[in-house]
């Protein structure tokens, strides 16, 4: 598999009154085309910082971001980025929210709407197209936000804890929904989460991250065959991977307390 996104010695440091604070140690990361990759780690491990760097919203202190072997450090509009909040615009209908990316790219509105409508219907937002976001439930809003990210035609999408605020029931529904979208659209997905179960269930590959400075502790492959039924979360393979992840995350904790 060719590499889609490559982080080349990316590091992040901030000047503080007490000296330089290292948020992210120089790290390398290669994400292959079409894979579902998760970053798991405690708060403050630099996951969100890395996302902002990949999206071009933050200039790294050192290193380069390569997308399709091209230097994309500090360039915006190269990847789809879904932030934790859905950020739907309250004065636009769901349909007009979803086409925001295409609209900004200069696509005629009519064309953009024609493209989006069948997808909204196919992916669980039928009947909501012309409603305003304030009449939608949290799960529905998240769906709209994700479709907006997908319809912004980039090969790579970054999802920053998209299901973090949802209840367990809605969350597992949304995970299956996301799996369907991913297999239909064939995008490269980078996913950030706190939830180890979620990361293992969804991903091909997990990067477990540690704090102070933010760094990758270990990369774990998930060789579980797809499609994955829910029951897979109870299988010995799954449990073994989960154990390893938790071990890594727990082992990293004393460093946090000592600092």
């Amino acid at each position: 598999m060719p590499v889609k996104v490559q982080l080349d010695r990316i590091g992040m440091a901030f000047a503080t009154p007490g000296g330089t604070f290292r948020a992210v140690a120089p790290l390398d990361l290669a994400i292959e085309t079409g894979r579902f990759v998760s970053l798991v780690g405690p708060s403050g491990c630099g996951k969100s910082t890395l996302f902002n760097v990949i999206a071009g919203l933050l200039q790294p202190t050192e290193g380069r971001v390569l997308i399709d072997d091209e230097d994309a450090t500090g360039t915006i509009g190269r990847v789809g980025y879904m932030l934790q909040k859905d950020l739907l615009l309250p004065w636009r209908t769901v349909l007009d929210n979803v086409i925001l990316g295409m609209e900004i790219q200069g696509k005629p509105l009519k064309q953009a709407r024609e493209r989006a409508l069948p997808l909204l219907r196919k992916y669980g937002l039928a009947g909501f197209e012309h409603l305003y976001p304030n009449s939608l439930s949290g799960g529905m809003r998240q769906r709209a936000a994700l479709l907006r990210t997908l319809l912004f035609d980039t090969d790579v999408i970054l999802l920053d804890e998209p299901f973090g605020a949802l209840d367990a029931q809605t969350k597992s529904q949304m995970q299956e929904w996301l799996m369907q979208l991913w297999s239909d659209f064939r995008k490269t997905v980078v996913f950030v989460t706190h939830d180890v179960d979620e990361a293992i269930y969804l991903s091909d590959e997990i990067h477990v991250m540690g704090t102070r400075p933010g760094r990758i502790l270990e990369t774990i492959q998930i060789p579980i065959a797809r499609p994955r039924p829910r029951a897979v979360t109870l299988s010995p393979d799954f449990t073994a991977i989960k154990e390893r992840c938790l071990q890594l995350l727990t082992a990293d904790r004393p460093a946090l307390e000592a600092a």
Partner: peptide
């Protein structure tokens, strides 16, 4: 204004004028 809203627009490759017209003004 929520800075994350601006972030979203910029991540979609928006120009400042687009952010102003489609986010700040409304």
């Amino acid at each position: 204004l929520d800075p994350d809203g601006e972030k979203l627009f910029y991540s979609l490759g928006a120009s400042r004028w687009q952010v102003f017209r489609k986010l700040v003004m409304p």
